[in-house]
């Protein structure tokens, strides 16, 4: 509801942009069962943990629809950087050389928006990734993304707190969360692989919490 209103407010600003096309799809309903929803599970790699300094290096996403990850929808977009990769290259296994073949930020963003239309965006540790995405969106279209978002990390934290289990540092990393659900090691660290890992985590979280019954978008937030 709130999102719809905010979108209305920015509607004029984003006219004729990919963001507008994305917004044109109706927002998923809160009472909708998760199997009827489409999720776009996304992960971003960036050159710094500080959104003001860093920039996006790559985006990876994959759709979850009809209760399953649709592997064919997976995309991995390297984003052309202005400043080179810098020191975090070792973490992200991205090198300037590879980035030469990357697409400009606008194209990557447009592709993401096209994939995200009508879907719920899912991220692990959403604030950071969203900050980057929103900043880019504002630069490009003058408005934030204003997409419905689910954060698997927040979901996990809430779940653990509800059960009163103590949280040790590092217990909520993607890998640790997955291990908690008996999901296999997901190995390498790139945006798409992390997105895929997050998508599997999302399925596991939903499966455990729904116990096979009805489970709505509202329950996810």
């Amino acid at each position: 509801m709130w999102l719809a209103l905010r979108r209305l407010r920015w509607a004029r600003r984003v006219a004729a942009s990919p963001l507008q096309a994305c917004w044109r799809e109706p927002l998923p309903g809160r009472r909708c069962d998760w199997r009827a929803l489409s999720f776009l599970v996304c992960d971003a790699e960036m050159s710094s943990l500080d959104p003001r300094q860093g920039e996006l290096l790559s985006l990876g996403w994959v759709t979850v629809a009809e209760g399953a990850v649709q592997l064919g929808t997976a995309r991995h977009q390297l984003i052309a950087s202005e400043h080179g990769v810098g020191q975090s290259a070792t973490i992200h296994q991205i090198h300037d050389r590879e980035l030469a073949a990357a697409s400009p930020p606008a194209a990557a963003m447009a592709a993401l928006l096209q994939a995200a239309a009508g879907k719920v965006l899912v991220l692990h540790h959403a604030p950071l990734d969203l900050a980057y995405l929103n900043r880019l969106s504002r630069q490009l279209y003058g408005a934030s993304l204003l997409l419905p978002v689910v954060d698997t990390l927040a979901l996990e934290r809430a779940q653990r707190e509800r059960r009163g289990s103590p949280l040790t540092p590092g217990a909520l990393t993607l890998q640790a969360c997955r291990a908690h659900y008996g999901l296999p090691d997901h190995g390498a660290h790139n945006a798409l692989q992390d997105a895929l890992a997050t998508a599997e985590l999302l399925l596991a979280q939903i499966a455990r919490r729904s116990a096979g019954g009805r489970f709505t978008l509202g329950d996810l937030r």
Partner: peptide, 22 residues
């Protein structure tokens, strides 16, 4: 308006992008 078909400039390269699954 027709939705654009989902052909991306960067198409999926399954063997590279989905290397762990492969």
């Amino acid at each position: 308006m027709n939705r654009r078909p989902e052909d991306q400039p960067d198409a999926l390269r399954p063997l590279v992008d989905l290397a762990p699954v492969a």
